[in-house]
Structures are given as structure tokens and as C-alpha cells.
Write a protein that binds this DNA or RNA. Structure first.
Length: 859
RNA sequence: GCGAGAGUGGCGGAACUGGCAGACGCACUGGACUUAGGAUCCAGCCCGCAUUGUCGGAUAGGGGUUCGAGUCCCCUCUCUCGCACCA
């Protein structure tokens, strides 16, 4: 008998599909389009299990939709700019570009070996000028519309490296390359994209994305963080300055007794300049800024601050309020300053207690009395206004509105909506990224590179400087240029763009990846966009998806496309996890470093850790390549899909892979052993009456088609779809094993079961099914075969099992005809011997009958 | 810390709308076949039992709603993801 030889079969069909060009698509108006996209990978070296899982999920959907008659766009490309290339260049003494392109070649071959049905003609890499030139163009257009602007910001800086550090390069407040070197915050001029202009729309459209998981939408809503409130102006004593604060509690303004600045606030320096407080304040600011923001502002962190020596006036009471700098105030949120109402805000209360600042109650609860002296925490609930001049006696919810109106009428402030969302900082002081197309001219200032001079090429003949510094600011041939306006000597921007910019529009470039007259061909974009189904890791739930939604709107407002949202449906898949091995001496160990629960280096007993996301740092990775070599791509695909539903984390199990392998072998054997008989008959057509065994096979066949179709179509639960196919297989197999002689009718029923089984399996394990389909005597490739449909008549059964409970506990089961009336079922249930035993002589209080399912007798 | 999720046998998971808890697979145990088995086939497999019963208990822990809760509500615990320069 022919053995199942996945290596031979898989390569055979991969080259067949490629030769026939089955997955290359063009705009075909006779078919419904379906744009399926998985998040493109960063070319880090070789594919990992996370990729395999993500793309296996996508490939099932792509192949399924094709079989349902859709014109499926399924592209793949590379998110090719980024920091790991720079790190690898330093470590391996190579060039970021060389490293990246080699990785791409290797990983492309791996993806092809997995049999994913991509249209490879559309492949793109974001590090190619043909790609990033359009990003530069869009940047220029954004600059001209005021959507790209520069402002000061703070970055992590290592004095030894003389470079900016990414958050992940900061370890416990120190540089990752110099663990004894404190990271300092350095002020820097950076480019920002004005995503806040779209905050309102991005928020509102969260309600119009029914195809997205609710948890992702909730996270996005919270991230955007809309809050309604007011800006209130506090004039500074002995100064022309007015401090604006944002508050959602303008109802408490009469109780504001001091004011706090965020440490970064520029007015802090100005107000203390030359005063005796200057030094103390500066030291506090410096100390505070070293602590990262979320530790600094955590609830449990002690509220700290320093008095600036200056005062401002409460615009309502005209009383003087001391001005502080406080650790819990965020510069990035609101105006970077707050009015402190210690009686009605817990943080303000703690701060006031610590520094002996005055308290003034302005809201009184209905049910109890409050006194300033007796307060042990802030009163933050609703109540009636007191000590608030004309607003006394007003419920605070009403006062919110009325006080805002009053402030507005007196010019002391205005109602406003504030968002937590900040503008998107895109400047990176890095080499391996897309250059920002701006020129600085001593005479003309900030000048955009003329569009006809694009792209600003990233010079490839450069190496990273000491400490990983970008060579761009040191490379005269790059930065020296002439001003496009005055032709005088000028300097290029040497910052590159955040790689999130590339991934914010690649899905739009895929519709016309070689188009040379603009970022995309409008006709094609009109046909393909939006993406019907986007699939990727849950870790991108906020930033990547929000940036993409923003960027798509920017392109819309520039007239490039007419859609609002890029992704109609979203599937967020969980991580691939595995247990870890840890040795007391040698830290994390690879599985091959463990022998009989001991470390092979020192012989110490190892500790088996809980299952966490596969990663190099915890050494719990499984290399997909090894599995492909051993079992073939089909087995790997099957395991990834079978082990858990996509949105949950996947628990890695080598034994589970073995199980998938065995199942494919069983399917293979069943067909090979019966190939002659199966190819000789026609599938059962429903005309001849069947014996009960055969009727079960027939029923199971149609039941399985229904179940698998619904599992894939409605909820992407491939694990249960595969289970259902396994059940059908078991049914067929058992029939074959239990029958001494198999009639012609039986063979036809078996064929009616086996063929859909092969087709249903095809999206999951495309190679083996193609081979089996051929063995069954079919000429055409399975990729062109339609998805099977089930016959309703085949699913009808004449009787039904009804569960009988007494007081909610199952006590008996009866078979009843489907047509039996509710009353009849109830009677039959009550007559049941076992039920009677449990009822005994107790009184029947109530009987609940659920049609065709259950009877509950309450006694 | 804040925001969002998740928790079911030895393990991965199933139970989709509140209606038989544990489908399917793995591991394990016993048997068959075999020169051999890490191949294959058959059977068993949540826990408990001084009543082996279509008995009792059991879906992280505690409480509630309901004729009925893994599923809905409240509290607690644990784990995971995101937190704006990793992608």
C-alpha cells in the first residue's frame, strides 16, 4: 500500500497551484469580492508558531471563501523596517538591509512550504523605496494640511550610547546596554500626526463596526477616552499669565484651593525663574521625571509635590490659591495643569493633607453631614452645592451645566470635550526607517521636499554608529542639501518614521502594489477595499488598528478612497503558549537542554513553569520548520487549528501534533484501502430506502456538512469543525469495520460520505486532500471544486430524545416522535416509571416542557 | 496602577440562544496482532462510595437570580494582553 508521504505530496501540489496560478486574482465584476488579510510579519529571521497559527487560520478562510465562489484577494508582504534589523546588524556585523532581505527570502520560502494560498505577485516590502515613497508623499500632504507638525517631547536618552532608547530598551530605568546607566528624559523636537483631529470620528465609528470583537472596541473607546468638561482660566497673581486647566468637575470650582502643574509643564520654569524656589522645584522636577509615568501616577504612589512660591486666583471666589508642581499630574492629558479640589477628589485630598493645604466643602451629600475637619477621604459622590455663591442648593449634576455656562458668559472658561488620546509621535532617531521628507533652511525654516523630488532615499551604504546611533545625522551626503525655496544650503531631516506608519496603509497598497502613479489605483481600491476579514494577534488591538483607522480616514479626506473604515470584520487570535523550563543556575532552558527533569549542564532539578507566550527570552519556542520536516505542513496546520478556537491562546503540545499526524494517516489509509470500490460507484442520491446503519451514515454526512459550514462561516471555530469531521470519519470507519459484506448501495452511501469529508478537510489540509481527490478519480483540482451543501431531508429524524428532570435533576430519557404535542410529552414523562419513583407521593407543583428537548417536573 | 479579557477531568478543549457537563483529540491503563513496536486495531478512562446506583459530588472560590446556571448578576483569587519609541 502507498504510504502517506507528505513531503512528496505537498511539494507536488504547491508547484501545481503555483503553475496554474490559482491564487492570483484580478478585479472580476461577475464575482463577489472577498479581501482576506492577515497581519503581515516583521521579517525577523524565520517564521514562528504565532505566524503559522495566524496564517493557517487565514488560509482556511481564504480557501473556504474561494470554494464558496468568492473572488478572494489574499496577499502577503513584509513589515520590513524596524529596530531588530539594527540590533542584528550590530550583533552580527552585517547591514540592516542585507539582514532584512535575506530574512524575507528565507521566510517567503517557509510560507510557501506551508502551502498558504497567497497571491505572491502582490508581495511587498515596506523598506523598498517603491513603497515608502508614497508614505513620504502622504506625509507631505498631511504637512500641508496641518496634520503633521512638530512639537517638543521627551524621549529616553542614554548618555553612554548618546542615543534615544525605545521603551523596551529601558530596563528598570537603565539602558539595556549599560545596566548601571540611568536613562534620562531629554527634550526633543519631534514630528507628530494629528490623530486627535479624528478622535471624535474614531470614537463614534466604534459603534458602527459590528464585525469587530466587542472587547477590542471597548479597549479602543477607552483609549480614545472622551470626557466632557470645561476649561477654566486661573489668572496668576503678579503676572499676565493665565493658567488654563481642564476639569470634568467644574461643579466643584468653588472648592478649588490650590493648583498643580505637571512636572514637564513649561510654565513651571518660567514662574520660578530667578526665585528662591527655583532650585528646589527644578530638583523635584528632575527627580520625578525619572520615574515612569504609570508608576508616578499609580493610585498607591504617594502624592508628592513642591510649592512654586506663586499664587493664582480662583476665578469664582477671587481667593488666592498656591501653585504646586505635583507628581500625579499628567502633562499629556488636558492642559497639563489641574485645579485641585481636595474635598472632592481623592488624589487632591491626599496631597492637601500632606502639605497642610486648606479644604473647603462645596458638595454635601443628602444623607449625612460633612465637615472639613472630620474628613478622612474625599467625598466624590453626588450631592447639593454649598459654599458656592449663587449655586448653593443646586444638585451638583445640574451645577455642572450651569457653572460651565456661567464661566463661559464671564469669559472665565468654556465647555469642552477632552480626549485621552494623544497625537501620534512618529519621529524616530533611527536609521532603518523611512526618511521624513523635510528640509530645514536657515532662511526659509521648515520646508517640505517637493513632491517631484520623492522619494527621499534612505542611503544603504551606511553603517550604524557607536551605541547604535543612526548614521544619518553624521552623513553629509545625506543631510546636506539645498533649500527648494531659496536654493541656499539647507539640512535634511534625519529622523525616520515610526514603523507603525508603514503598517497603517499596506492593506491599501496590496490592491495595486506595483502602481507607479500614486499610492494606489483608484479603480482597484474601489473594487477591493475595505478588507472583508482582517486576522491578527490580540496584542494589536489598540495601536496598530487605531492608527490604520486614522490613516485610512486621512487618505479618504485626501480623495484617495471613499471608505471610512479599513477592516469590516476583525478576528483577534490568541498567543501560542508553551511551558517553560528553568534551572536555578542556568536560567531558562531549551527543551533539548533538559533530560529527565534535569539540566544537562549542571544536573540540577529543573522547574517547570506555567504556559506563557512562546518567546526567545523564555526559550519555550518550537521551530515550525522542524515540524514541517518531520510531519509536513498539513499536520502542522491541522494541529494549530484543532488545538483551540482562534481567539483563545493555543497551548502547545507535541503529542497533539502527533495526534493530528495519526488522523491524517487514518484518513489516508481508509481511502487507499477502499479506492477501487469507492471510485467505481456513484454517490448515494437519496432514492433508495436505507437500512438503519446506513441511514446513520447518511444522516451523519449531512449533519457534518451543516456543522462544519456553520462553524467556519459563523464563528471561525475550526477546532469544532475538525472534531465534526473526525466524528464523520469514525462513523465511516466503524461501518466499514463492522460490516462483513458491503452492498452496492452501502458503497454509494460511503462514497456520499467520503467525498464531502475530503472536501470539508481541504481548507485545513489542502495537500493531502488534493492527492486523495485525485486518487478518488477526479481530474479537477480541489481548489476549483464547490463547497458541499447539505440536504435538509437527510437531517430529519422521526423521533427525538427528551430529557426528563425532577427538580432540575435528570432522572430519565424518552424517545418521542417529533410530531408529538407538548401535552402528550408531558403525560408520557409523568407516566415514566423512574420519574414516578422520584416523585413518590410528593405533590407536583409545576411541569415545564421545552419543546422536543426537556421536561422538568417540580415537586 | 489603569483599561480589556480568560479560568471546565491528568492535558488541549466541547457544551453556539439559561435546558443531559466533559463531544473530539492527547496522555494513561488493559487486551489483540506482531520477530519487534514509539505502527495498527479493540476496550476502559472526571472524582467519591461500608448502598456500583442512569447513586452522590463537581465547571477558580464565595454569594445571588431562576423550575433549571459552566452560561446571567455581585464580591474575591489567579493568569494573559495593552498602556503611546518592540512589532
Amino acid at each position: 500500500m502507498e504510504r502517506y508521504d507528505p513531503q512528496a505530496i505537498e511539494v507536488k501540489w504547491q508547484s501545481f497551484w503555483e503553475k496554474e496560478g490559482y491564487f492570483r486574482v484580478t478585479e472580476d465584476r461577475t464575482k463577489k469580492k472577498y479581501y482576506l488579510l492577515e497581519m503581515f510579519p516583521y521579517p525577523s529571521g524565520k517564521i514562528h508558531m504565532g505566524h503559522v497559527r495566524n496564517y493557517a487560520i487565514g488560509d482556511v478562510v481564504a480557501r473556504y471563501k474561494r470554494m464558496r465562489g468568492f473572488n478572494v484577494l489574499h496577499p502577503m508582504g513584509w513589515d520590513a523596517f524596524g529596530m531588530p534589523a539594527e540590533n542584528a546588524a550590530i550583533e552580527n556585523n552585517t547591514h540592516a538591509a542585507k539582514w532584512t532581505y535575506e530574512n524575507i527570502d528565507y521566510m517567503r520560502a517557509q510560507l510557501q512550504r506551508m502551502g498558504f494560498s497567497y497571491d505572491w505577485d502582490r508581495e511587498l516590502a515596506t523598506c523598498r523605496p517603491e513603497y515608502y515613497r508614497w508614505e513620504q508623499l502622504v506625509f507631505l500632504k498631511m504637512f500641508k494640511k496641518g496634520l503633521a507638525y512638530k512639537k517638543k517631547t521627551y524621549v529616553n536618552w542614554c548618555e553612554l550610547c548618546q542615543t534615544v532608547l525605545a521603551n523596551e530598551q529601558v530596563v528598570d530605568g537603565c539602558c539595556w546596554r549599560h545596566l548601571d546607566q540611568d536613562v534620562v528624559l531629554k527634550e526633543m523636537d519631534s514630528w507628530f500626526l494629528k490623530i486627535t483631529d479624528y478622535a471624535k470620528e474614531l470614537l463614534e465609528y466604534c459603534d458602527r463596526l459590528p464585525g469587530w470583537p466587542e472587547k477590542v472596541l471597548t479597549m479602543q473607546r477607552n483609549w480614545i477616552g472622551e470626557s466632557h468638561g470645561a476649561i477654566i482660566r486661573f489668572p496668576i497673581v503678579d503676572s499676565d499669565h493665565v493658567i488654563e486647566v481642564f476639569t470634568t468637575r467644574q461643579d466643584t470650582v468653588f472648592g478649588a484651593t490650590f493648583l498643580c502643574f505637571a512636572p514637564e509643564h513649561p510654565l513651571v520654569k518660567e514662574l520660578t525663574k530667578g526665585s528662591d524656589k527655583a532650585k528646589e522645584v527644578e530638583q523635584f522636577v528632575e527627580r520625578t521625571l525619572k520615574i515612569d509615568t504609570f508608576m508616578r501616577t499609580a493610585d498607591f504612589t504617594v502624592k508628592e509635590g513642591v510649592f512654586t512660591g506663586r499664587y493664582c486666583l480662583n476665578p469664582m471666589t477671587r481667593e488666592e490659591m498656591p501653585i504646586y508642581v505635583a507628581n500625579f499630574v499628567l502633562y499629556e492629558y488636558g492642559t497639563g495643569a489641574i485645579m485641585a479640589v481636595p474635598t472632592h477628589d481623592q488624589r487632591d485630598f491626599e496631597f492637601a493633607k500632606k502639605y497642610g493645604l486648606s479644604l473647603k466643602i462645596v458638595i454635601r451629600p443628602a444623607d449625612k453631614d460633612l465637615t472639613e475637619e472630620g474628613m478622612i477621604e474625599a467625598y466624590v459622590d453626588e450631592g447639593i452645592l454649598v459654599n458656592s455663591g449663587p449655586f448653593n442648593g443646586m444638585p451638583n449634576m445640574e451645577a455642572l451645566e450651569r457653572i460651565a455656562d456661567y464661566l463661559e458668559s464671564k469669559g472665565m472658561g468654556y465647555k469642552t470635550v477632552n480626549f485621552r488620546l494623544k497625537d501620534w509621535g512618529i519621529s524616530r532617531q533611527r536609521y532603518w526607517g523611512a526618511p521624513i521628507p523635510i528640509i530645514y533652511c536657515p532662511k526659509c525654516g521648515v520646508v517640505p521636499v517637493p513632491e517631484d523630488q520623492l522619494p527621499v532615499l534612505l542611503p544603504l551604504a551606511l553603517d550604524l554608529k557607536e551605541g547604535g546611533r543612526s548614521p544619518l545625522p553624521y552623513e553629509a551626503s545625506f543631510y546636506e542639501t539645498e533649500c527648494p525655496r531659496c536654493s541656499g544650503p539647507a539640512r535634511r531631516e534625519t529622523d525616520t518614521m515610526d514603523t507603525f506608519v508603514e503598517s497603517s496603509w499596506y492593506f491599501e497598497r496590496f490592491v495595486s502594489p506595483r502602481y507607479e502613479n500614486g499610492p494606489f489605483d483608484k479603480q482597484k481600491i474601489a473594487y477591493w477595499m475595505p478588507v472583508d476579514q482582517y486576522i491578527g494577534g490580540i496584542e494589536h488591538a489598540i495601536m496598530h488598528l487605531l492608527y490604520s483607522r486614522f490613516y485610512t480616514r486621512v487618505l479618504r479626506d485626501m480623495g484617495y478612497l471613499k471608505i471610512d473604515e479599513p477592516f469590516t470584520n476583525l478576528l483577534t487570535q490568541g498567543m501560542v503558549c508553551k511551558e517553560t523550563f528553568k534551572c536555578a543556575e542556568h536560567d531558562y532552558l531549551y527543551p533539548e537542554e533538559v533530560k529527565e527533569q534535569r539540566c544537562i549542564h549542571c544536573g540540577k532539578q529543573i522547574k517547570i513553569g506555567g504556559s506563557v507566550k512562546m518567546s526567545k527570552s523564555t526559550k519555550n519556542v518550537v521551530d515550525p520548520q522542524r515540524l514541517i520536516d518531520r510531519y509536513g505542513a498539513d499536520t502542522v496546520r491541522m494541529f494549530c487549528l484543532f488545538a483551540s478556537p482562534p481567539e483563545r491562546d493555543l497551548e502547545w503540545s507535541d503529542e497533539g501534533v502527533e495526534g493530528a499526524w495519526r488522523f491524517l494517516n487514518r484518513v489516508w489509509r481508509l481511502l487507499i484501502e477502499n479506492r477501487e470500490r469507492l471510485s467505481d460507484v456513484k454517490p448515494y442520491d437519496g432514492r433508495v430506502a436505507l437500512s438503519s446503519n446506513l441511514r446513520d451514515v447518511h444522516w451523519k454526512t449531512h449533519q457534518t456538512i451543516k456543522k462544519v459550514t456553520e462553524d467556519i462561516e459563523d464563528r471561525f471555530h475550526f477546532n469544532t469543525a475538525i472534531s465534526a469531521i473526525m466524528e464523520l470519519f469514525n462513523e465511516i470507519n466503524q461501518f466499514l469495520n463492522n460490516s462483513k459484506e458491503i452492498s452496492g448501495v452501502a458503497w454509494s452511501v460511503l462514497k456520499e460520505a467520503v467525498e464531502p469529508m475530503v472536501i470539508l478537510l481541504h481548507p485545513v489540509v489542502p495537500h493531502i486532500t488534493e492527492e486523495l481527490w485525485e486518487i478518488l478519480g477526479h481530474g479537477k483540482s480541489l481548489t476549483t471544486v464547490s463547497w458541499p451543501t447539505y440536504r435538509k431531508e437527510a437531517l430529519e429524524k422521526e423521533s427525538r430524545l427528551v430529557v426528563i428532570q425532577v427538580n432540575g435533576k435528570v432522572r430519565s430519557r424518552i424517545e418521542v416522535p417529533v410530531s408529538l404535542a407538548e401535552k402528550e410529552i408531558q403525560d408520557q414523562a409523568l407516566r415514566d416509571k423512574r420519574v414516578q419513583r422520584f416523585i413518590g407521593d410528593k405533590e407536583i407543583k409545576r411541569v415545564i416542557v421545552v419543546q422536543r428537548k426537556l421536561v422538568n417536573v417540580v415537586v
